[in-house]
Design a binder for these strands. Structure first.
Length: 1116
RNA sequence: AGUCCCGUAGCUCAGCUGGUUAGAGCGCUACACUGAUAAUGUAGAGGUCGGCGGUUCAAGUCCGCCCGGGACUACCA
């Protein structure tokens, strides 16, 4: 390209802490973000920019951030780029605002996914652990596996520009970490918030293990199944309590209860009714035996079971009565196999109607068959009412051998027996035969399955340790209200409402690779110890060694199996063994505020400085995961929030809006994306495309487009600056041109820039990063590139270094440097590249990197709203004029005489006057003529101001709008003169002022006009001979410049021009010869009659002429 | 089943505490500019603001119900 200098690219000279200047702004042919980023990365690493950015800030002014630990057991995906971009940009922003933001990394190392991948690799199941492979070996494999993809994670971290300290991360499997977790558990234990309970939990008989809610919620676990359902009839015993139900001695009264799990019917011990639900007794006949029978069910559900095609008929129906009336009524056991009632909290009563709030009339009969061993609600209700239980199914999922003909039969086909007979069906058949079935049907519903065995889960009573989170519910709710949630709805809704009916936290996991529950018990459970530190464990071990004559030591590794071997001793000398459960891994990560510092055993000061966090961020899926466990533990142990603000980002979906998954093959590879488009473009796209808490439809094409638009334009703007600044040797060495001596457009862009700084600062502080990026983008695209640079181009390449030219350089430089700082949190690479390219030449700031600089401060004095409005007028007026030219097909190079601009008030006129020159230059028109209404050519129209009038007029608004819209010219003129207007509707009168009306010009009769809101523009399209000649002159200049360019002449070369004579061209040369010569740097411009050697050029209106251009002297 | 988010032009998204002509970018079409040119500008077409009902003088915006997409949670007999 002829005007560009070839510049040898100086190597990076900036050193840590100080800047060595380069002499030229670097120029580049094309924007290559990935290349820039690699270079910037090398720079950051070589000069430890991250470390410096943290260390240079005061210890006493911190912004605390917690890193949610990822598991390196799986590969990172594009959604991790999303979450980490948010974390990173907030931390970088706060750093630039002067805060010290330490970012300690962490690794989540325990849990099911790790265990499973090991089992898969070894080809074993959970049952094999301790048999085919020792627990020690198994855990060793887990420990090795857990960091499998650490290299990928580290590379992603590095390459995406996520600044986090990975040299000193916390790792959840380390003894120090475990010890802190134990300490936390001990605090909770000491507050009486831990208990062991025999509760109903999801259980997989096929796998022989309880399942966590996590496991139950793995994709595909809830499946549609078709089950046999039974409405069973429970025969009421007649006694004092139930007597009122019977009409006569022979009446057979039965209570109806529906179940989708008939195999639980032998274990029934109660029936639960809703105390406030209305029930009725219906006389009918048994559909299977034909015997007369009376059945009790909810009134609302009568229609469901009666009156249909094949359903029994209603012979008579009682008046409704509330469920509370049924309470205490006894019934005969449905299927009696002579098993004793097992005590539940000591109670062994059974076969009685009880009440429960959970009963609804949504389905079934409004009466719940209650088997306390197989349902959590059932168990709760039974306990409340002193009912015992029957557990007639064993842990393998088959009936015990005391259940008559059903003994030994699996309740579901857990063994893949090809001849499996559905026991539900057989139970139904027996009930039908015995006249105890009211209805038997197939029913399709969702039921959870064990994701590993594909078999239905069973709810089964299991021993577990719980944290009584329900006891601190109110405090958690209260503290949550002080947390700033982004978006707020997640905090109030998903999280808040969930807290309000929080369940106790089931801590137990019967697993191997995790933090062992530090509780030891005597065999009879009468004494237990919760260990809160290694020192305490050592003491207890020594005590036990002495008392029991053992030779134990604190294990080097606090995991199983070593910790299981430790035996402690009770106060009366009995051995105590550890409860074999591990704790829920979510407790691990929720412990990190303390455990990352090995608090309270070390770093007490550090912990105090870093608790609670100012900010955390993760995906919404962590709402009930990490966000919850942090909150719960902090509430229980420290009576504090764990974080003051939290951003929960949405999912990253594919461009069709589907969830990304390996299975669908629509997962986007983060490494690939970054390598192709750059980390900055990826980050910028993710943040600017949609609010982080909305789901993002990730589309590579959109990313590319966004990158081209924003980074491309910013790059072009920089390139433009660098090109001319190098020619002029501009290094910002001269004094600052005072603002008041700069031109309108300079002061305008600086005003906008300061407004931008103010807004972006506020947005970023409020975690509104999408708004911030969009504002920056608008500034760069629309204002800086498309208006400021475009209109200021001439100032940069024309003439010597005048004050105006200097002001232009300074202004553009300031804009670029400031933008680099504003964008630095989101696009750290390009921002630093831009900053260093600029500051590396001028040395105006002492920082080697933009990330060591301060976030820009607003110069409020530079903000000039009137000027911003003025320029907005200029843009709109220009746009209107251009659209008029367009309509008339008059090229912009053709000058026109004047623009007519109706002005309705003096301030508008004054405003336009201030930007008149810009408008005229932009639209190539000679003058603006202001038309006032005194000239009589303007047609005015009045519109109501709905905002001010609506409130006052209320329902008369419609009529008012019509009256105002129909006001005549004269009336409008009068209103403007008097400043008031009496509006009469019906009998009422309102006194309106000019504020209540918008008066606009819509038309100038006889002229070509265009309107945009309140601005109307008319264009004089008469082309005089002189204007035409000037148009051709401009065409000529343009064609000659093109020739210079295509011939690779230097910008400063002088030329000689010979033109073939042509009547129009001759006029142009005669009148505008000087202009042509000046513009094209021509020493001579001659007209000749024949120019056979010349090139042919096309001017407007189909004129073509021959021309000869040659260089007269070369200048370098 | 509950809770929450989303549903505005072919695509991606704006639209503040309700105010009358619903915006932008891309894409498409046409054109201009040509000393930022693998850049830039202008114009045009394109919308039942998911649907129905309500509140209001006025609803994309507030309320209710429904439909569709998504997430999380769950002890649905």
């Amino acid at each position: 390209m002829w005007w560009s200098f070839s510049v040898s690219l100086a190597p990076i000279l900036a050193e840590a802490g100080k800047t060595k200047l380069t002499s030229m702004y670097k120029e580049y042919k094309n924007l290559n973000l990935p290349e820039i980023e690699e270079e910037v990365l090398r720079f950051w690493e070589a000069h430890r920019v991250f470390e410096q950015s943290v260390e240079q800030r005061s210890e006493s002014d911190r912004f605390v951030f917690y890193e949610g630990p990822p598991s390196a057991n799986g590969k990172p995906g594009i959604h991790h780029v999303m979450a980490r971009t948010i974390k990173d940009l907030v931390c970088r922003f706060q750093t630039m605002k002067g805060k010290r933001v330490a970012r300690k990394g962490g690794w989540d190392t325990h849990g099911l996914p790790v265990e499973l991948s090991v089992e898969k690799e070894l080809g074993i199941t959970k049952e094999d652990i301790g048999k085919k492979i020792s627990v020690a070996e198994y855990n060793q494999r887990c420990r090795e596996t857990v960091m499998r993809y650490k290299a990928e994670w580290d590379e992603l971290t590095r390459r995406m520009g996520y600044w986090v300290d990975l040299e000193h991360p916390y790792i959840t499997y380390e003894n120090d970490y475990i010890e802190s977790v134990w300490w936390l558990l001990r605090q909770i234990y000491d507050k009486g918030l831990m208990y062991k309970g025999y509760t109903i939990q999801p259980y997989s008989p096929a796998a022989g293990t309880g399942l966590s809610s996590h496991e139950l919620n793995m994709p595909g676990c809830y499946r549609e199944v078709k089950d046999t359902t039974v409405v069973a009839m429970f025969k009421v015993r007649r006694d004092e309590r139930s007597d009122w139900l019977f009409d006569d001695d022979s009446e057979d009264v039965r209570i109806l209860a529906w179940t989708t799990t008939p195999w639980t019917l032998p274990s029934n011990t109660a029936l639960t009714v809703g105390p406030d639900i209305q029930y009725v007794k219906v006389k009918t006949t048994n559909p299977y035996t034909g015997e007369p029978v009376s059945v009790i069910l909810a009134q609302d559900l009568v229609d469901r079971w009666f009156g249909q095609k094949h359903s029994p008929e209603i012979l008579s129906m009682s008046a409704p009565f509330p469920g509370s009336a049924l309470e205490g009524i006894r019934y005969e056991q449905l299927l009696d196999f002579g098993n004793p009632i097992e005590p539940l909290d000591g109670a062994t009563d059974a076969f009685r109607v009880i009440t429960g709030d959970f009963v609804t009339t949504e389905d079934g009969t409004g009466i719940v068959h209650t088997a306390p061993s197989f349902g959590a609600d059932d168990r709760k209700a039974a306990k409340q009412h002193g009912i015992g239980t029957l557990t007639l199914v064993d842990a393998q999922g088959k009936f015990k051998d005391t259940v008559g003909e059903f003994s030994g039969r699996y309740v579901k086909n857990y063994t893949d027996d090809p001849n499996y007979q559905d026991v539900d069906v057989d139970i139904a058949v027996r009930l039908k035969k015995e006249g105890k079935a009211f209805n038997v049907a197939k029913y399709v519903h969702n039921y959870p399955h064990c994701w590993r065995t594909d078999k239905p889960v069973l709810y089964y009573p299991l021993d577990s340790w719980f944290i009584k989170t329900s006891a601190v519910r109110d405090r958690m709710v209260e503290l949550n209200k002080t947390i700033k949630w982004k978006p707020a709805s997640t905090g109030e809704g998903r999280f808040g409402k969930w807290l309000e009916n929080i369940q106790d936290w089931n801590l137990s996991r019967s697993r191997y690779w995790g933090i062992p529950l530090p509780i030891w018990r005597t065999e009879d459970g009468t004494e237990e110890k919760c260990i809160g530190s290694v020192a305490e464990l050592r003491e207890e071990i020594e005590k036990a060694n002495a008392a029991l004559g053992l030779d134990q030591q604190v294990p080097d590794d606090l995991h199983r199996p070593w910790i299981d071997e430790v035996v402690l001793v009770s106060s009366d000398g009995k051995p105590m063994r550890r409860e074999t459960d591990l704790i829920d891994v979510w407790f691990d990560s929720g412990s990190m505020p303390a455990a990352q510092w090995h608090y309270p055993f070390e770093n007490q000061e550090k912990f105090r400085q870093n608790f609670p966090a100012d900010f955390i961020a993760e995906g919404v899926d962590q709402t009930r995961g990490w966000f919850y466990t942090l909150h719960a533990i902090a509430t229980m142990v420290f009576d504090s929030v764990a974080y003051k603000s939290v951003v929960s980002n949405g999912l990253v979906l594919d461009k069709e809006g589907r969830k990304m998954s390996k299975r669908l093959g629509n997962a986007v590879d983060p490494f690939d994306t970054i390598a192709r488009f750059g980390a900055d473009a990826t980050r910028w796209y993710m943040i600017s495309a949609s609010q982080p808490w909305d789901n993002l439809k990730f589309d590579l094409e959109a990313l590319e487009e966004n990158s081209r638009r924003f980074f491309g334009r910013l790059f072009n703007t920089y390139s433009f600056f660098a090109l001319y600044a190098n020619i002029d040797g501009f290094k910002y060495e001269q004094d600052e041109v005072p603002l008041e001596r700069r031109t309108e457009i300079d002061r305008w862009i600086i005003s906008l820039l300061n407004t931008l700084v103010q807004q972006v600062d506020a947005d970023m502080a409020d975690y509104e990063m999408t708004a911030a990026t969009r504002r920056i983008q608008t500034f760069v695209d629309e204002h800086l590139s498309n208006w400021y640079v475009r209109l200021s181009r001439r100032r940069f390449w024309r003439g010597e270094m005048t004050e105006d030219k200097l002001a232009a350089y300074q202004t553009l430089y300031t804009c670029l440097v400031t933008v680099s700082k504003l964008m630095a949190p989101v696009a750290p690479f390009f921002a630093d590249w831009l900053y260093r390219n600029l500051n590396g030449v001028t040395g105006r700031e002492p920082h080697a990197s933009v990330h060591l600089a301060d976030f820009p401060a607003v110069d409020e004095a530079a903000i000039d709203r009137a000027l911003e409005q003025r320029m907005d007028y200029a843009q709109r007026i220009s746009s209107l004029v251009l659209s008029l030219r367009k309509r008339q097909k008059i090229r912009v190079r053709q000058p026109l005489q004047k623009v007519l601009l109706p002005v309705l008030d003096d301030s508008f006129r004054a405003q336009v006057e201030g930007v008149k020159d810009l408008i005229l230059a932009e639209v190539n028109v000679k003058e603006i003529e202001y038309v006032t209404d005194t000239s009589g050519v303007i047609k005015k129209k009045a519109k109501p101001n709905f905002k001010t009038l609506g409130r006052r007029l209320g329902k008369h608004m419609k009529q008012a709008a019509q009256i105002i819209g129909n006001l005549s010219q004269e009336e409008i003129n009068r209103i403007e003169r008097e400043g008031r207007f009496e509006l009469k509707i019906d009998d009422q009168t309102w006194e309106l002022t000019l504020d209540d009306l918008d008066i606009v010009t819509e038309d100038i009769p006889g002229w070509l006009v265009a309107t945009d809101g309140l601005i109307t523009v008319a264009l004089d399209v008469t082309i005089t001979d002189e204007l035409r000649a000037e148009g051709y002159a401009r065409d000529l200049v343009n064609r000659i410049q093109n020739l210079r360019k295509s011939r690779d002449y230097n910008v400063t070369d002088r030329i000689a021009i010979r033109l073939e004579r042509h009547p129009e061209v001759e006029k142009a040369v005669q009148q505008f010869g000087d202009y042509i010569r000046t513009e094209t740097l021509a020493d001579r411009l001659e007209l000749v009659d024949h120019l056979p050697e010349g090139e042919t050029i096309e001017l407007a209106d189909g004129i073509s002429v021959r021309i000869e251009v040659e260089r007269v002297a070369e200048k370098v």
